[in-house]
Lab assay of single mutants.
Amino acid sequence: KLETFPLDVLVNTAAEDLPRGVDPSRKENHLSDEDFKAVFGMTRSAFANLPLWKQQNLKKEKGLF
């Protein structure tokens, strides 16, 4: 399991300012399950079932792209 970080560490943070080991294209993977659901309004599995373009739009909207 990946290390999780608080939302404010990941949202609207440039790649070079992210904690070590965080993939800038997969910031959402480093949210706790609770934060993930609070941000996206759905579970990880529901998010994973969305088309890629919709996932990317949601990530942009939430500052996690």
Score class of each variant (00 low, 15 high):
residue 1 K to A: 14
residue 1 K to H: 13
residue 1 K to Q: 14
residue 1 K to I: 11
residue 1 K to P: 14
residue 1 K to R: 13
residue 1 K to T: 12
residue 1 K to L: 12
residue 2 L to H: 12
residue 2 L to E: 08
residue 3 E to T: 11
residue 3 E to R: 06
residue 3 E to Q: 12
residue 4 T to N: 07
residue 4 T to D: 04
residue 5 F to L: 07
residue 5 F to P: 02
residue 5 F to Y: 15
residue 6 P to A: 06
residue 7 L to Q: 05
residue 8 D to F: 09
residue 8 D to C: 13
residue 9 V to I: 13
residue 10 L to D: 01
residue 10 L to V: 03
residue 10 L to C: 05
residue 12 N to K: 08
residue 12 N to H: 11
residue 14 A to M: 10
residue 14 A to Y: 06
residue 14 A to D: 11
residue 14 A to W: 06
residue 14 A to V: 09
residue 15 A to W: 13
residue 15 A to R: 11
residue 16 E to K: 13
residue 16 E to M: 07
residue 16 E to T: 10
residue 16 E to D: 10
residue 17 D to T: 08
residue 18 L to K: 02
residue 18 L to D: 03
residue 18 L to V: 06
residue 19 P to L: 04
residue 19 P to D: 04
residue 20 R to S: 14
residue 20 R to I: 14
residue 22 V to N: 03
residue 23 D to V: 06
residue 23 D to E: 06
residue 23 D to W: 04
residue 23 D to N: 10
residue 23 D to P: 04
residue 24 P to L: 07
residue 24 P to W: 02
residue 24 P to F: 05
residue 25 S to I: 10
residue 25 S to G: 11
residue 25 S to D: 15
residue 26 R to A: 10
residue 26 R to Y: 11
residue 26 R to G: 07
residue 26 R to S: 09
residue 27 K to E: 03
residue 27 K to A: 07
residue 27 K to Y: 04
residue 27 K to I: 15
residue 28 E to L: 04
residue 28 E to T: 04
residue 28 E to D: 03
residue 29 N to Q: 15
residue 29 N to T: 08
residue 30 H to Y: 15
residue 30 H to R: 04
residue 33 D to P: 07
residue 33 D to H: 06
residue 33 D to N: 08
residue 33 D to Q: 05
residue 33 D to M: 04
residue 34 E to F: 10
residue 34 E to H: 10
residue 34 E to N: 10
residue 35 D to K: 02
residue 35 D to P: 00
residue 35 D to G: 04
residue 36 F to P: 00
residue 36 F to E: 00
residue 36 F to L: 01
residue 37 K to Q: 14
residue 38 A to I: 13
residue 39 V to E: 02
residue 39 V to H: 05
residue 39 V to Q: 03
residue 40 F to T: 01
residue 42 M to A: 00
residue 42 M to W: 01
residue 43 T to H: 08
residue 43 T to C: 08
residue 43 T to E: 11
residue 44 R to W: 04
residue 44 R to N: 02
residue 45 S to I: 14
residue 45 S to E: 15
residue 45 S to Y: 12
residue 46 A to H: 11
residue 46 A to I: 09
residue 46 A to T: 10
residue 47 F to M: 01
residue 47 F to H: 00
residue 47 F to A: 00
residue 48 A to V: 09
residue 49 N to W: 06
residue 50 L to D: 00
residue 50 L to R: 00
residue 51 P to D: 06
residue 52 L to E: 14
residue 52 L to A: 10
residue 53 W to M: 08
residue 53 W to T: 09
residue 53 W to F: 09
residue 54 K to Y: 14
residue 54 K to P: 00
residue 54 K to F: 12
residue 54 K to A: 13
residue 56 Q to P: 00
residue 56 Q to D: 15
residue 56 Q to T: 13
residue 56 Q to Y: 10
residue 57 N to T: 13
residue 58 L to T: 02
residue 58 L to M: 12
residue 59 K to H: 02
residue 59 K to M: 06
residue 60 K to E: 13
residue 60 K to I: 14
residue 60 K to Y: 12
residue 61 E to S: 09
residue 61 E to W: 07
residue 62 K to A: 14
residue 62 K to D: 01
residue 62 K to C: 08
residue 62 K to Y: 08
residue 62 K to S: 07
residue 63 G to D: 06
residue 63 G to A: 03
residue 64 L to I: 07
residue 64 L to E: 03
residue 64 L to G: 03
residue 64 L to H: 03
residue 65 F to L: 15
residue 65 F to D: 15
residue 65 F to S: 15
residue 65 F to T: 14
residue 65 F to N: 14
